[in-house]
Amino acid sequence: MATALRIPMASSISCCSSSSPQSMKRCSFKPCAALNSRNSAKIPLPPINPNDPFLSRLASVAANSPEKLLNRPANSDTPPYLDIFDSPTLMATPAQVERSVSYNEHRPRRPPPDLPSLLLHGRIVYIGMPLVPAVTELVVAELMYLQWMDPKDPIYLYINSTGTTRDDGETVGMETEGFAIYDAMMQLKNEIHTVAVGAAIGQACLLLAAGSKGKRFMMPHAKAMIQQPRVPSSGLMPASDVLIRAKEVVINRDTLVELLAKHTGNSIEAVANVMRRPFYMDSTRAKEFGVIDKILWRGQEKIMADAASPEDWDKNAGIKVLDAV
């Protein structure tokens, strides 16, 4: 680059050094022309990366002040062309590449969200604990959020819960916890597909039966059970307070019987009769009782239809069934 700019100046000097007057006359205008051409010359620049500050700065100096590039010191401790920067940078800042976050990678870029949030993205609400206030709050909020997101797409409610009691029968929540989720389900515009996995006991069985007609399912080895509500621990309460609580439990029982009768298609008397004691149902009996509509197992419905009921097995085996004690 510098050599190309110095050639016109050298030719003009050698031409004017001649002693001939004619040559002096002929070359008298060339130094000025060479100087003007030098000032007006544009140094050819290769294509540069506009995101590279080093090359951009170098191109700007070459275009505006080419003498800084042409008159370089012979011996200098500074690397070439870095003295034109106040704070030289050898490399440009790498481009910031936006990467999509995938939680299927072995090493995600950021921590994944919690599992209920991932299920909620697929419009799945999972009840996997007894119906305590914290569970009720989360489930109702998820149902309301999914309706707000899309009031037409169905919601899938998976149930594996012992209701308001634990598996040992101890009461852990009031019956209103189950009624709160039930009322939220009834207010939604969406179809609600209910699926029982594991167990649906007490109030959880009501939620299973409250799904949209034809969209209530049960895994083949899941269990459903309906029972009367239980009186919470009274402790050292006065007798009058214990009586008030007992009356409230009776009211909740009657409400539960009416709702189960409504969603199973049975009479109130039939539901109240089987609820006198805990009434367990496998997938086949739950379908017969009207709690569910379909068993989720490929070919399971045909297999169950061909199999004899427990009463028929006992009858064929010659076993007499005694009245339950």
Rank of each mutant, 00 (worst) to 15 (best):
M1K: 11
L5K: 14
R6G: 00
I7M: 05
M9V: 12
M9N: 06
A10W: 11
A10L: 13
A10T: 11
S11V: 15
I13S: 03
S17K: 14
S18A: 07
S18H: 05
S18F: 06
S19E: 13
S20V: 04
P21R: 15
K25P: 00
F29S: 13
P31V: 11
C32S: 14
L35W: 09
N36A: 12
N36W: 14
R38M: 15
R38P: 00
K42E: 14
N49D: 15
P50L: 08
D52H: 09
R57M: 13
R57Q: 14
S60T: 14
S60L: 12
V61C: 07
A62M: 06
N64T: 15
L69A: 04
P73V: 00
N75A: 07
T78H: 01
L82S: 15
D86N: 11
P88W: 08
L90S: 07
A95T: 15
V97S: 00
R99M: 13
R99W: 07
N104W: 05
R107V: 15
P113Q: 02
P113T: 04
P113S: 07
P116K: 02
H121C: 03
H121P: 00
R123Q: 00
I124W: 05
I124Y: 03
V125L: 04
P130R: 10
L131E: 10
V132Y: 02
E137A: 10
E137I: 04
L143N: 07
M144E: 13
M149N: 14
D153T: 13
L157M: 06
S161C: 10
T162G: 05
G163S: 08
T164F: 01
T171Y: 01
T171V: 15
G173Y: 02
G173V: 07
E175F: 01
T176F: 00
T176I: 04
G178L: 02
A184R: 07
M185W: 02
M186Q: 15
K189M: 03
H193D: 01
T194W: 02
A200V: 11
I201R: 02
I201E: 03
L206E: 03
A210N: 09
S212L: 04
G214V: 12
G214K: 12
M219T: 11
P220L: 12
M225A: 06
Q228Y: 10
V231H: 00
P232Y: 11
D241W: 08
L243D: 09
I244T: 12
I244S: 08
A246C: 03
R253K: 07
R253F: 06
L256G: 02
L256R: 01
E258N: 10
L260T: 03
A261L: 00
H263E: 01
G265S: 13
G265H: 10
N266F: 03
I268F: 03
N273I: 00
R277A: 05
P278M: 01
P278Q: 02
F279R: 01
Y280L: 14
D282Q: 12
S283G: 05
A286R: 03
F289T: 14
F289R: 05
V291W: 01
I292V: 15
R298T: 13
Q300C: 09
E301C: 04
M304L: 14
A305H: 09
A307N: 10
A308E: 08
S309C: 05
W313N: 06
K315C: 11
N316R: 08
K320Y: 13
L322E: 14
D323P: 06
